[in-house]
Amino acid sequence: MAVIQVERKPLTFAERTYIPQIIGGLWVTLKHFFQPTVTLQYPEQRPEIPKGYRGVPTLVKDPNGREKCVSCQLCEFVCPPKAIRITPGEISAESDNAHVEKGPQAFDIDMLRCIYCGLCQEVCPEEAIFLQNQFSMSGYTRAEMVNNKERLYELGGTLPDEHLKWDKKKTAEEHGNAH
Protein backbone atom coordinates (compact mmCIF):
# COMPACT_ATOMS: atom_id res chain seq x y z
CA MET A 1 0.00 0.00 0.00
CA ALA A 2 1.40 3.27 -1.04
CA VAL A 3 1.99 5.65 1.81
CA ILE A 4 1.82 9.32 0.97
CA GLN A 5 3.95 11.39 3.27
CA VAL A 6 2.30 14.73 3.76
CA GLU A 7 4.71 17.51 4.40
CA ARG A 8 3.43 19.38 7.42
CA LYS A 9 4.44 22.99 7.43
CA PRO A 10 5.75 24.13 10.80
CA LEU A 11 3.59 26.85 12.30
CA THR A 12 4.91 30.35 12.09
CA PHE A 13 5.36 32.41 15.22
CA ALA A 14 2.24 34.43 14.48
CA GLU A 15 0.25 31.24 14.11
CA ARG A 16 1.59 29.83 17.34
CA THR A 17 0.39 32.87 19.26
CA TYR A 18 -3.16 32.12 17.94
CA ILE A 19 -3.77 35.83 17.68
CA PRO A 20 -4.14 36.28 13.89
CA GLN A 21 -6.46 33.28 13.81
CA ILE A 22 -8.50 34.60 16.71
CA ILE A 23 -8.85 37.98 15.03
CA GLY A 24 -9.84 36.24 11.80
CA GLY A 25 -12.47 34.25 13.65
CA LEU A 26 -13.81 37.34 15.35
CA TRP A 27 -14.07 39.02 11.95
CA VAL A 28 -16.07 36.07 10.58
CA THR A 29 -18.51 36.09 13.50
CA LEU A 30 -18.83 39.86 13.31
CA LYS A 31 -19.81 39.59 9.64
CA HIS A 32 -22.45 37.04 10.57
CA PHE A 33 -23.62 39.31 13.38
CA PHE A 34 -24.71 41.91 10.86
CA GLN A 35 -26.11 39.53 8.27
CA PRO A 36 -29.89 39.11 8.07
CA THR A 37 -31.27 36.11 9.87
CA VAL A 38 -32.17 33.03 7.88
CA THR A 39 -34.72 31.62 10.31
CA LEU A 40 -38.22 30.86 9.06
CA GLN A 41 -40.70 32.42 11.50
CA TYR A 42 -42.73 29.24 11.42
CA PRO A 43 -46.34 29.75 12.34
CA GLU A 44 -46.51 33.00 10.38
CA GLN A 45 -44.18 32.03 7.55
CA ARG A 46 -44.73 28.60 6.08
CA PRO A 47 -42.03 26.61 4.36
CA GLU A 48 -42.29 26.21 0.61
CA ILE A 49 -43.40 22.61 0.05
CA PRO A 50 -41.38 20.94 -2.69
CA LYS A 51 -43.09 19.11 -5.54
CA GLY A 52 -43.79 15.48 -4.77
CA TYR A 53 -43.83 16.07 -1.03
CA ARG A 54 -45.38 13.23 0.95
CA GLY A 55 -47.57 14.84 3.56
CA VAL A 56 -50.74 13.61 5.20
CA PRO A 57 -52.63 11.06 3.03
CA THR A 58 -55.94 12.44 1.79
CA LEU A 59 -58.86 11.36 -0.36
CA VAL A 60 -59.68 13.42 -3.43
CA LYS A 61 -62.71 13.98 -5.62
CA ASP A 62 -62.67 14.25 -9.37
CA PRO A 63 -63.52 17.58 -11.10
CA ASN A 64 -67.19 16.58 -11.23
CA GLY A 65 -67.32 16.18 -7.46
CA ARG A 66 -67.52 12.38 -7.54
CA GLU A 67 -65.61 10.59 -4.83
CA LYS A 68 -62.98 8.61 -6.63
CA CYS A 69 -62.42 5.87 -4.09
CA VAL A 70 -64.21 2.66 -5.03
CA SER A 71 -63.27 0.92 -1.77
CA CYS A 72 -61.17 -1.75 -3.44
CA GLN A 73 -59.17 -1.88 -0.19
CA LEU A 74 -55.80 -2.23 -1.95
CA CYS A 75 -54.44 0.59 0.17
CA GLU A 76 -55.71 -1.12 3.28
CA PHE A 77 -53.88 -4.28 2.29
CA VAL A 78 -50.66 -2.59 1.25
CA CYS A 79 -50.42 -0.22 4.22
CA PRO A 80 -47.35 -1.41 6.18
CA PRO A 81 -48.39 -0.11 9.61
CA LYS A 82 -52.07 -1.00 9.01
CA ALA A 83 -53.14 2.60 9.45
CA ILE A 84 -56.03 2.44 6.96
CA ARG A 85 -59.41 0.89 7.79
CA ILE A 86 -62.08 0.85 5.07
CA THR A 87 -65.67 -0.26 5.36
CA PRO A 88 -66.82 -0.88 1.76
CA GLY A 89 -70.30 0.09 0.73
CA GLU A 90 -72.61 0.02 -2.30
CA ILE A 91 -73.52 3.16 -4.19
CA SER A 92 -77.32 3.37 -4.26
CA ALA A 93 -79.04 2.84 -7.61
CA GLU A 94 -80.65 6.29 -7.51
CA SER A 95 -77.26 7.99 -7.50
CA ASP A 96 -75.78 9.61 -10.61
CA ASN A 97 -72.73 7.48 -10.03
CA ALA A 98 -74.61 4.20 -9.74
CA HIS A 99 -72.45 2.75 -12.52
CA VAL A 100 -69.38 3.02 -10.24
CA GLU A 101 -71.16 0.48 -8.02
CA LYS A 102 -68.99 0.75 -4.91
CA GLY A 103 -67.70 3.48 -2.61
CA PRO A 104 -66.37 3.56 0.91
CA GLN A 105 -68.95 3.62 3.68
CA ALA A 106 -66.26 4.60 6.14
CA PHE A 107 -62.60 5.40 5.53
CA ASP A 108 -60.34 5.94 8.53
CA ILE A 109 -56.63 6.67 8.47
CA ASP A 110 -55.00 6.51 11.88
CA MET A 111 -52.34 9.23 11.71
CA LEU A 112 -50.69 7.88 14.83
CA ARG A 113 -49.82 4.78 12.82
CA CYS A 114 -49.23 6.29 9.38
CA ILE A 115 -45.58 6.34 8.37
CA TYR A 116 -46.06 8.58 5.32
CA CYS A 117 -44.56 5.92 3.04
CA GLY A 118 -46.90 6.74 0.17
CA LEU A 119 -47.60 3.12 -0.75
CA CYS A 120 -51.35 3.79 -0.63
CA GLN A 121 -50.98 6.49 -3.23
CA GLU A 122 -48.72 4.22 -5.27
CA VAL A 123 -51.11 1.29 -5.25
CA CYS A 124 -54.42 3.11 -5.78
CA PRO A 125 -55.88 2.12 -9.19
CA GLU A 126 -58.38 5.00 -9.05
CA GLU A 127 -55.88 7.76 -8.16
CA ALA A 128 -58.13 8.51 -5.23
CA ILE A 129 -55.64 8.77 -2.39
CA PHE A 130 -52.81 11.28 -2.43
CA LEU A 131 -50.17 12.34 0.04
CA GLN A 132 -50.47 16.10 -0.19
CA ASN A 133 -48.79 19.17 1.33
CA GLN A 134 -50.34 19.06 4.80
CA PHE A 135 -47.49 18.32 7.20
CA SER A 136 -48.61 19.23 10.70
CA MET A 137 -51.08 17.00 12.47
CA SER A 138 -51.87 17.53 16.09
CA GLY A 139 -54.61 16.70 18.54
CA TYR A 140 -55.28 16.33 22.21
CA THR A 141 -56.62 12.78 22.08
CA ARG A 142 -55.87 9.64 20.13
CA ALA A 143 -59.36 9.76 18.63
CA GLU A 144 -58.63 13.19 17.17
CA MET A 145 -55.65 11.78 15.33
CA VAL A 146 -57.81 9.39 13.30
CA ASN A 147 -58.90 11.05 10.07
CA ASN A 148 -62.37 9.90 9.06
CA LYS A 149 -63.88 10.11 5.60
CA GLU A 150 -65.22 13.68 5.89
CA ARG A 151 -61.91 14.93 7.21
CA LEU A 152 -59.98 13.11 4.48
CA TYR A 153 -62.09 14.69 1.72
CA GLU A 154 -61.83 18.07 3.42
CA LEU A 155 -58.03 17.79 3.45
CA GLY A 156 -57.88 16.34 -0.05
CA GLY A 157 -60.24 18.57 -1.99
CA THR A 158 -60.46 18.15 -5.74
CA LEU A 159 -57.60 17.32 -8.01
CA PRO A 160 -57.61 17.55 -11.82
CA ASP A 161 -58.19 14.24 -13.58
CA GLU A 162 -56.96 13.48 -17.10
CA HIS A 163 -58.81 10.22 -17.59
CA LEU A 164 -62.32 10.58 -16.14
CA LYS A 165 -62.63 6.86 -16.85
CA TRP A 166 -65.96 6.35 -15.12
CA ASP A 167 -67.52 9.17 -17.14
CA LYS A 168 -66.16 7.61 -20.33
CA LYS A 169 -67.53 4.25 -19.26
CA LYS A 170 -70.96 5.75 -18.63
CA THR A 171 -70.96 7.52 -21.99
CA ALA A 172 -69.91 4.33 -23.74
CA GLU A 173 -72.68 2.37 -22.01
CA GLU A 174 -75.25 4.96 -23.04
CA HIS A 175 -74.09 4.61 -26.64
CA GLY A 176 -74.31 0.87 -26.36
CA ASN A 177 -70.69 0.01 -27.00
CA ALA A 178 -69.43 -0.96 -23.61
CA HIS A 179 -66.02 -2.62 -23.92
Partner: peptide, 10 residues
Protein backbone atom coordinates in the same frame (compact mmCIF):
# COMPACT_ATOMS: atom_id res chain seq x y z
CA UNK B 1 -29.40 37.55 21.40
CA UNK B 2 -25.72 38.01 20.50
CA UNK B 3 -25.32 34.28 20.11
CA UNK B 4 -28.40 34.15 17.91
CA UNK B 5 -27.30 37.02 15.68
CA UNK B 6 -23.83 35.57 15.28
CA UNK B 7 -25.48 32.35 14.14
CA UNK B 8 -27.87 34.21 11.78
CA UNK B 9 -30.87 33.47 14.00
CA UNK B 10 -33.33 35.99 15.45
Amino acid sequence: KVCAWIQNRP
